[in-house]
Structures are given as structure tokens and as C-alpha cells.
Design a protein around this nucleic acid. Sequence first.
DNA 1: AGTAACTTACAATGCTGTCAGTAAGTAGCA
DNA 2: TGCTACTTACTGACAGCATTGTAAGTTACT
Lengths: 213, 213
Amino acid sequence: MATTRRQLPPRPETAARRREILAAALETFGAKGYNNGPLAEIAEQVGMTHAGILHHFGSKDRLLVEVLRYRDESDVEGIEGQHIPDGIELFRHLIRTAFANEQRPGIVQAYAVLSAESVTNANPGREYFEDRYRVLRGEVVAAFRAMCAERGLEEPAQVDRAAASILAVMDGLQVQWLLDPTQVELAETSAFAIEAIALQALDPRPSPFDQGS
Amino acid sequence: MATTRRQLPPRPETAARRREILAAALETFGAKGYNNGPLAEIAEQVGMTHAGILHHFGSKDRLLVEVLRYRDESDVEGIEGQHIPDGIELFRHLIRTAFANEQRPGIVQAYAVLSAESVTNANPGREYFEDRYRVLRGEVVAAFRAMCAERGLEEPAQVDRAAASILAVMDGLQVQWLLDPTQVELAETSAFAIEAIALQALDPRPSPFDQGS
DNA sequence: AGTAACTTACAATGCTGTCAGTAAGTAGCA
DNA sequence: TGCTACTTACTGACAGCATTGTAAGTTACT
């Protein structure tokens, strides 16, 4: 009754076509946000109709999720080989990323817009960003631990806070830089702040704000 | 030909009604973003139709601009008297603000969502956020200068970067905190990062990342 | 022969903004 | 004080557009 061949594998060019769509979607969502970025505009960029995109991805929500994963992959491929850098190398990697980001405002904007949009009600990207920040914070914490071990220091009390802070400055600076690139040096400022936070975590000094008039 | 009485002043209750609308709009835009937050939902909160809101504000764009200004005012009124704190007091004020923000996630979300959304194409809030960051950076820079003068230090090289970084961490931490409040302590972490950055600006130590394997 | 990769057409919805009308207030004046 | 003229503060209806998703059909691969 049931024939055996129920599903055919996708055609060879299809994977490339999907990647084209993902790149176009990243551009449109980056420029206009998820809610304000229509499928039709994405379709036009790749020479299709919006129905063609829905054929590949099923719904706009699922497209967003795949776009976010795609951005991750292309990031990892582009910047470094495969491995996750550890210890001091992770911090250097973050700073290099900030310098690389200065050359790709489109990606930066997509990331800034979509991450903030994800905190709104029932946004399909929310889970992705929750996971992403959790993973990244974990990597930074691990890097701190590795540095301490290497130097024979005990683990400082504030690693968790320092990890969150480092990711936070990078993101926050991106927004300010996108708003006015003439007023904010993205990379240099990121490097400065990452160093400041790492130093205070590894070798704390007393707060300058605590008491006194 | 032309009679003299051309425009009547608004009725006494009108100002209060407008404020109600602004508060409702802040809530809706905060929850759903500007593009995704319909006028009808705002209208419902204050017991009106969306046409009534357009009567008061003319267009959705102008409503957003007024919402942003309204948030500023209510912030200034609520937190402190009138004056802009200077020197060390500004930093203390920023940290207090971070603690206060932990009690008002709605406002924080509105701010995070709308500021990121403002970097998208032709967003009506963009100018507001450009100005706001410029002004805030200026205030932080002035506070650094005041602190240096008081202590007889010369102005450090990195004040501009430190100022941008401090605002950036605060914003970035808000996003992470909104995504998962169980994993990020907004206020304590903000305080830690602000101190770290201020210390490095006022009394720099060499970068731990510069050379060596 | 069957399915992937589309297109065209369309249904269904949601949104902003306009328009005409209504009730209620206010100003000017007898 | 009361009448008239005009304005504010709305409502309800609707035009007009944009947008997502579906369904049916076509082409071309395998």
C-alpha cells in the first residue's frame, strides 16, 4: 500500500540556495529588525517570491532561528579554525573580534537588533539568545579559571560578574557605535574595557566610590 | 476676514490624559517593541480607541518620540531632585540607578528594546538615542574630570573610552538580565564593572593581554 | 512516476491614518 | 445669565496597505 520512496534528498544546489536565503535574511533582519523585515524583501534579494522562502523554511519564525544559527557558524568558520580558545587566548580572541566587527557593521547591527528584540513577548529568537549568553559566559568564566590556574592564583570571587560584564560592554558599545561611529571607537574601546574588567577580576583593587564625601 | 480667536488652550484634564497614554505606550512598546506594538493596545489600556490617540499625538512616530522624552522626565523626577550629580556622585548615582532598575523590569525592557530598535532604518527614535548617548557620555566625562581635578591628577587619556564603556556595560547587562534574571545580578554586576572601568581610567595598570604566550 | 523547487493567486489578518460626526466645554457678547 | 460660535476630545467606520501563510499548478530533476 505504502510505496517505499517517500522522501527524496534535497537537490545538490539546494543547500547553497538556502545559504543565500539565510544571508539575505540576515541582511534584512539586521537592517529592519525581525518584526519589521518582510519576507518579500528577503525573497527579492535572492530572486524569488516570498512563497519560495516559505517552501524552504516553513515559517518566518523558523527562518529566524536558522538565521541565528547560520550567523554563528559563519562566524566560527570565518574568524578562527575550529577550537574554542582558552585562557588568555579567549580574551585576545574577543578583542580581535571587536576589531573584525568594525569592518562589518551589517552583522553587528543584526546582532544588536535581534538580541534586544528577543527579550520581547514570545519572540522566536529568545531561546537562542538565552542559550548563547549562557554558553559565552561559561566560556569566559573558564578562561578566567585557566588564567588563574596558570598563574597559581586562587579563583577570584567575581569571575561570574566579570564574564557577564565583558560580554555586556561589547554589546553595549556596539549599539553606541552603530548610532554614531564618529563618536565611539568600537574596537579600541572594547579592548580598554575588557582589560579593565579582567584586571579588576584577577587582581582587585578597592572601590573608589565606597565612602568619603 | 480672519477672526482673532484661532486656537483654544487644551482643557485642564488633557495633560493628565496624555500622561496616561504615554505610560500605556511605554508599557506596550516595552513589551512588544515599537514596530510590533499596536496603537489599539495602548488605546485599550486607557479606555479609548486608537483614533483618540492619534488625535492627541498625530502619528505613531510622534508618540514614540514623546514617550521617550516622558521616560526621561519621569526618571529625573523620580530618582533625584533636579541637579545633575557631578564628580564621584555621578558614579554613585549610576550605581544607584542600576539597583533601582532591578525593581522595574518593564522600564528596563522598554529602554533596551527601543534603543536597539532605534539603530534600524529610519526609526523615529534614532535621533533621540543619538542625543541621549552623546549627552550621557559627556556627563560621565565631566565627572571623570571633576574627580581628577579634586585629586590633583592630570586628565587620563582614556576618559572618553571609559565613559562610553560604563554606559555600555549598564545597557548590555540589562539585556542579559532580562533574558535570564536568575543568571545575572544586574545591580551588583553593574557596580563591579563601573568600578573596574573607573579604576582603570583613573589609575591605569598595564594590559594583561599584551605579550607572552 | 514521483517529488523538489518553485510561481501565481488568494485568503485572512492586522495596522496606521483619515474622515465625518457628536458631545461637551469655553469665549465673547447681549 | 443665557445665547451663539467655535474648539477640543473624542467615536465609529472605513480606506488602503502590508504581511504571513496556503493552495493549486508548473517545470525539471532523479
